[in-house]
């Protein structure tokens, strides 16, 4: 846990669009799972930085994981940004993908939070 009120950054500064760095110092990527009927599940990935092209990510991920999926747009997810939704329990795989430097996004593992059982 970092100390919240001893940050050096200016909270009133505008977030720059390229990196989104100012805005996302404490932003986590949440990977969640939801049960559907039977043994079926959904995996939702929330908070992938906007510098990535979500559509492209989805396209690649669908191919690798052999599952279908959609992007839930900003309006539909009620202010939680674009959410990638995949069919089945893809939590571990998507985490690996997000971290992986070669064939993934190369994100920091600490920014990813995997929820669920």
């Amino acid at each position: 846990m970092s100390i919240e009120n001893l940050k050096t950054y200016d909270p009133f500064a505008e977030a720059d669009d390229d990196s989104g760095q100012t805005k996302q110092t404490q932003e986590y990527i949440h990977i969640r799972i939801q049960q559907r009927n039977g043994r079926k599940t959904l995996t939702t990935v929330q908070g992938i930085p906007s510098r990535f092209d979500h559509k492209k990510i989805l396209k690649v991920v669908k191919k690798i994981f052999a599952c279908n999926g959609t992007i839930i747009s900003d309006t539909e997810s009620k202010g939680m940004g674009e959410v990638i939704q995949l069919q089945g329990d893809q939590r571990l795989k998507i985490k690996e993908f997000l971290i992986s430097k070669d064939e993934g996004l190369g994100l920091n593992e600490k920014t990813i939070k995997v929820h669920g059982f």
């Binding site: 949440h30 939801q34 559907r36 009927n37 959904l42 959410v83 929820h115």
Partner: peptide, 8 residues
Amino acid sequence: TGFSAQVG
């Protein structure tokens, strides 16, 4: 709670 998809 974060995002939760409508199921069902």
